[in-house]
Amino acid sequence: MTFIEALLQYEFLQKAMITAVMVGIICGVIGCFIILRGMSLMGDAISHAVLPGVAISYLLGINFLIGAVVTGLVTALGIGFVSQNSRIKNDTAIGIMFTSAFALGIILISFLRSSSDLYHILFGNVLAVRPSDMWMTVIIGLIVLGGIFLFYKELLISSFDPTMAQAYGLSTRWIHYGLMTLLTLVTVASLQTVGIILVVAMLITPAATAYLLTNRLSRMLFLAGGFGTLSAIIGLYFSFTYNLSSGASIVLVATTLFALVFVFSPRHGLMRHRKRKESTV
């Protein structure tokens, strides 16, 4: 049976596809702002910091979105507090805070649930996605895309020239924490698809691929969403056909797309760079 036939026949595969595509789009779009603000490490941190939140939510019997957003934001605030109130640099503060949160998460999960659950949260298993997970991902996707649409202008100027943004009275601090909130939501939506460990790849790689192809932010957002989608579809195909880990397959497809663009991009590719260097010598 081919992948297409299976897709038409099996509902679980359709749900997996919808979820993975949505995750590909929102990771790509929010990832653009993450890489342009030089916050790749922060993306990694927030995604890991979601783990204790998920564990605590199970413990309290509440929706794990709530716990995830709380521990994600507490970690972001903690990083800001440590780096602003000591000589510790930002990347060091990030390293301390997110590994602590992650370690706490592992201990809490081991008390609560079986090791196979931990494995699924860490590495994802999109083929086991439930209808409720799919709907949650779709709703989170709409919130994230809506937020970016509404605050596009503010996100653009605070990323490009934060001093001007502040000078005319925009609160860059609120924009930062707003973005961190969206990032925790995206991470939670990605749990089933790629898992906590690899979500940072979906945030950074499609956005970086798009960055090499265009000089306009609006186009970069669409391209990044496109690369995320393409990675999700092709990755799911490999995952289903050869029985491979879904998250790892999707990420490796994203990496392959990046490698192709890195070499062949007409504007910023390796070939173009080489040529430019030769012509200047």
């Binding site: 342009l36 490009f160 020239d161 001007m164 000078a167 005319y168 000089n215 306009r216 932010l217």
Partner: peptide
């Protein structure tokens, strides 16, 4: 809104994906 600030060159990421007209529009 009637005060404009032009930052030092080193404060700007010149690889940022904006065109000249996008910057002026800001």
């Amino acid at each position: 809104s009637r005060v404009a600030y032009v930052p030092q060159r080193s404060a700007i990421d010149w690889d940022f994906p904006v065109r000249v007209q996008d910057v002026v529009l800001m």
